[in-house]
């Protein structure tokens, strides 16, 4: 501080010193925005509660695979006693491997991601209202937009945060299951079934792109928690139930299932994992290409809406 050579010299007063470094491009702000969003959600106990619930499905698959491997080592026995229970390994192997598909096949990972549907929907409803809705309601948006970045970067940052959550619930646990299966059975699993990794990643990418765009569009449109949840659940639950009623109940054309967006991601995900039409239950399904077209159309519509709102002034709120 100051000139220390002379005791009587006038002190150099502290004053504002302008930043002399080089600013990074606005795109570099995307990750900090996403990171802030992630921290906002991770701070909430409700999120951890929902995540713990979603982990139940993961744990069922995780220990299911483990149990299957253990029972297969006992396959020679007619019955195995675990505590007070007498179990027939053959029957359990059949249930775990064939019925629940915990056999490390493409169906394992596709079904796992599909069963996460409810939790993904609920967590994303929370994420939408916290990440974007709150910014509008509490007027935090000007804080972002007063920095040298545009609304596009703001939405990219929020989208990145949403994408992380989607993958945290679906892709990452599915990859963990893949690794677990390989570690339990054989290293060959990793080389022989490497296409499954690509399939899981592709399925994750389909979910990430479509759900992120839909969530951003609905959150920017509705802003408040309850309307957002109503729309979000209508898209993923009402349409699903309606599709089931129309196709399974009233025996209409399977193409009616195309209104169920989660089912569409399931079909496209199955195709990513190289599964044939026979691997789908219920069997009356539209073709995966049709499902992909619907998802693509919805994503483009959401993107167009976002582009329109980005140009509009009122997004500033």
């Amino acid at each position: 501080m100051g000139d220390s050579s002379g005791r009587g010299a006038a002190p150099e007063l502290l004053h504002y010193r302008p930043w002399k470094g080089a600013f990074r491009p606005p795109i570099a702000a995307v990750w900090p925005i996403a990171r802030t969003g992630l921290l906002m959600l991770l701070r909430r106990r409700l999120f951890w509660g929902l995540y713990a619930l979603s982990m139940m499905i993961f744990l069922m698959y995780f220990f299911g695979q483990y149990l299957l491997a253990w029972f297969q080592t006992q396959a020679g026995e007619s019955r195995v006693v675990v505590g007070l229970l007498a179990i027939h390994p053959g029957e359990l192997i059949e249930i775990l491997a064939d019925k629940l598909k915990l056999n490390g096949s493409a169906a394992t990972y596709r079904n796992y991601i599909h069963y996460q549907g409810y939790m993904v929907m609920i967590v994303l409803a929370l994420a939408g209202s916290v990440l974007i809705g709150n910014d509008f309601r509490y007027g935090s948006l000007p804080f972002y937009l007063s920095k040298p970045l545009s609304r596009r970067h703001y939405l990219l940052g929020k989208g990145l945060a949403v994408a992380v959550f989607i993958n945290l619930l679906t892709t990452l646990p599915a990859l963990a299951l893949f690794v677990e299966y390989g570690l339990i059975y054989s290293w060959d699993h990793f080389t022989r079934n490497s296409y499954l990794v690509a399939g899981i990643l592709a399925y994750g990418a389909v979910l990430t792109v479509s759900l992120t765009l839909i969530l951003l569009a609905t959150a920017v449109w509705l802003r408040r928690t309850v309307p957002l949840i109503m729309t979000w659940t209508a898209l993923f639950l009402l349409c699903r139930q309606l599709a089931t009623s129309l196709v399974d109940g009233l025996h209409l054309d399977p193409r009616w299932r195309l209104i169920d967006l989660w089912n569409n991601t399931w079909l496209v995900g199955g195709a990513c994992l190289q599964m044939g039409p026979e691997a789908f239950d219920p069997a009356s399904q539209p073709r995966w290409v049709e499902a992909a077209l619907v998802l693509g159309g919805v994503s483009v519509a959401c993107l167009s809406y976002l582009a329109l709102r980005l140009r509009a002034v009122e997004i500033v709120g």
Partner: peptide
């Protein structure tokens, strides 16, 4: 009871109720 009742309610309705 909750700060985000809509989220809790939706979790209850479409997860626990089902």
């Amino acid at each position: 009871a909750f700060r985000r009742p809509a989220i809790v309610a939706i979790g209850y309705s479409f997860f626990l109720e089902i």
